[in-house]
């Protein structure tokens, strides 16, 4: 077998280079470029690959020069391909005709759900209260008389304990009647029994009172009740906290007003109004924690004092969302629920 002539080998290389040049000059798109790439640079049957096989057939004295020539041509061919690829890079704009669509047709539906407006309101209230240092707590809805009444200074003969005014639960042990809690203050008692002052908590959740359901009453509703126990706490602190709350909730600088009232577990007791659109609107009840309540959980009323306040969530939510009939909150009609977008308020 004779060695391949170096000159012939170099001539083959040069021919390849000029063929590549010629071919690439006519290449107009990426597909044609890829086709040419396979013809010339294909890893298996490309022409360059074929020539590389010739390198092994050169005489041993010709091999270094042949190798140099091969590499130079390979580089140059690759550079030509690179140039061409930069030239024919696919245009962004589609050149082929595609079917035109009616862009006014509806998109594929992506649906988000909604958080219930009552939950939204509770979250809003508790996030404002969290900014004021109040931690959200919860507790049982089925309660005993101690937590629902006695510890809250509601004695046995108090009208609030009347069987017709509460949802008592049939139990085997009649010495220990149970009922659905009528206020979330029960949770405050439970927390005070467990912890020492200072305390700042908001208890929230469902409460139950036998009211006939109408536009403004429902036998099940939600309360948010705040409690602060700290040495030196006064009604001035109470008023300041509620003013901060009202200002955050309604926006702007909102004034609050106290009207004397009566609750068994606070004294002095007040109704709280906030000024909204030039009118005083009822916000809830509040007061200084009654000394007997502090005693019932083992606190010394001369050492610590505190205040408590309660807000009716349904009432706030009804006003906030323009709901005229609070029974709508419990009908769970999707057409109702879908109207309340949480827009990041809480």
């Amino acid at each position: 077998m004779t060695n391949l002539n170096l000159d012939a080998f170099v001539a083959d290389l040069e021919r390849l280079r000029s063929e590549v040049k010629k071919a690439l000059a006519n290449v107009a798109d990426t597909e044609a470029l890829e086709a040419s790439r396979i013809v010339f640079l294909g890893a298996k049957n490309g022409q360059l690959k074929a020539l590389q096989k010739g390198l092994g057939k050169l005489g041993s004295e010709d091999k270094p020069a042949g190798g140099q020539q091969f590499n130079a041509v390979k580089k140059s061919v690759e550079a030509l391909f690179l140039q061409a690829s930069q030239r024919v890079v696919a245009p962004l704009k589609n050149t082929k005709a595609v079917e035109q669509i009616d862009v006014t047709l509806p998109g594929s539906p992506i649906r988000f759900g909604r958080v219930h407006p009552i939950t939204q309101t509770i979250r809003r209230v508790s996030s404002i209260m969290a900014n004021l240092g109040f931690e959200a707590v919860d507790g049982p809805e089925v309660e005993d008389q101690w937590h629902n009444f006695e510890a809250l200074a509601i004695p046995n003969e108090h009208p609030a304990r009347d069987p017709l005014d509460n949802f008592y639960i049939a139990v085997a042990n009649t010495n220990r009647p149970l009922l659905l809690r009528s206020q979330t203050s029960t949770v405050q008692i439970r927390v005070m029994e467990q912890r020492k002052p200072p305390l700042r908590i908001v208890s929230l959740g469902r409460v139950y009172r036998p009211d006939t359901a109408d536009a403004t009453h429902y036998p099940m509703f939600h309360q948010v009740e705040g409690l602060l126990i700290e040495p030196g706490a006064t009604m001035a602190h109470l008023k300041s906290v509620l003013r901060s709350f009202a200002s955050s909730f309604l926006g702007g600088d909102v004034r609050v007003r106290f009207r004397p009232s009566f609750f068994p577990f606070t004294e002095p007791s007040v109704e709280v109004d906030m000024e909204w659109n030039g009118r005083w609107i009822e916000m809830g009840g509040a007061g200084m924690v009654d000394p007997s309540v502090l005693q019932s959980v083992g606190y010394d009323p001369d050492e610590v004092c505190g205040f408590a306040f309660g807000l009716g969530v349904e009432r706030i939510a009804a006003r906030r969302f323009g709901v005229a009939d609070i029974r709508d909150f419990y009908r769970n009609d999707i057409r109702f629920l879908e109207q309340f977008h949480d827009r990041g308020q809480a």
């Binding site: 969290a130 004021l132 240092g133 109040f134 931690e135 959200a136 700042r200 006064t234 009604m235 001035a236 602190h237 008023k239 300041s240 906290v241 003013r243 901060s244 004034r255 609050v256 007003r257 106290f258 009207r259 004397p260 007040v270």
Partner: peptide, 17 residues
Amino acid sequence: YDCVPENIPISAVPVQR
């Protein structure tokens, strides 16, 4: 109760959910 001030500063307390 109008005589009760409504702008007493309240100390900050860290709160976690």
